[in-house]
Amino acid sequence: MGGRVTRSLAQVFSHREASIALMILILFVALSFANEYFLSSRNLLNVGRQASVVAIVALGQALVIISRGLDLSVGSTLGLSAVSSAYVASVTGSQELALAAGLGAGLVVGVLNGLMVTRININPFIATLGMLSVARGVALLMTGGIPIPYTGWAQWLGAGRIGDVPFSLILLIVLVVVFHIFATRTRIGRNVYAIGDNPKAARLAGINIEGTRLLVYALCGMLAGLGGIILAGNLASASPDLGRGYELDVIAAVILGGAALSGGRGTMYGVLLGALLMALLSNAFVLLGISSHWQVVAKGLVIILAVGIDGLRRGRED
């Protein structure tokens, strides 16, 4: 009997999502004892809001990584989309056009990434590393390096609340559900997993690899664009420097959430958990009054720990 319980527990923890959920739980319990303010709804909702942009962008990144790709350009795409959106808003005054410009800029970057990877066969790491620089440069050129004030819909997206709940958090939950359904229930979503699991087999099974990969990069770019609008709206200002270094947080959330860089493995709710864990960590450092420099160290350690446990469990592969 005891053996069976141990075994089924072991089964649960063979999913990396479970170890992340456990880490979140431990942190949650520890923090609620350590600081009475932690459990206040205001604080918790704030954690959710902080997690939302990283998590939204990470949903797209997760699809890319599951298909055995990588998008390093998401931070720059986010910045470019934010300034494009703010620029169109300030020139035309139209909120619809501004929103479309932000999402469109992200989409264009994503499609270009996808074309580089699928048509010219550039390694995704290199293609999107190049794009990281190009997109940031274009954002700087568009603004001359000076932030553009940004109000309107974006502000509501980034800082608005429904009741007490931040709108970006609600949007995140909706998107997680939508992308979970997309990834697990649709034909294209399932093909994404198959391609990442064994691209050669997927091709011979008649799956359109190029088309699927292109779509995945396009979605990732568009979600980065959405993230840019939310972030700029929250700050009421679109800086061309917005999202610098964001790609690392986003990739970390995906990997923490149980996706494998080698493709074929990962879930959308795992991404949500990964982003939550990182937001909880930064919240912990604020509440406990520890230097934020330690937070940078801790973030790195958590990533190494989470992936390290998995590596030890799977053993050597070569």
């Binding site: 034909r187 093909n191 198959a194 699991d197 064994n198 087999a201 997927a202 099974a205 799956i207 074929g264």
Partner: peptide
């Protein structure tokens, strides 16, 4: 070049059939 190693038996069998099964893209 044949199997999808982290997929189940079921999904290895069905992978080339998803197009016919799907209704409006959903399987």
């Amino acid at each position: 070049r044949g199997i999808l190693p982290t997929h189940s038996v079921e999904r290895n069998i069905s992978i080339s059939h998803l197009g016919q099964l799907a209704r409006h893209g959903f399987v």
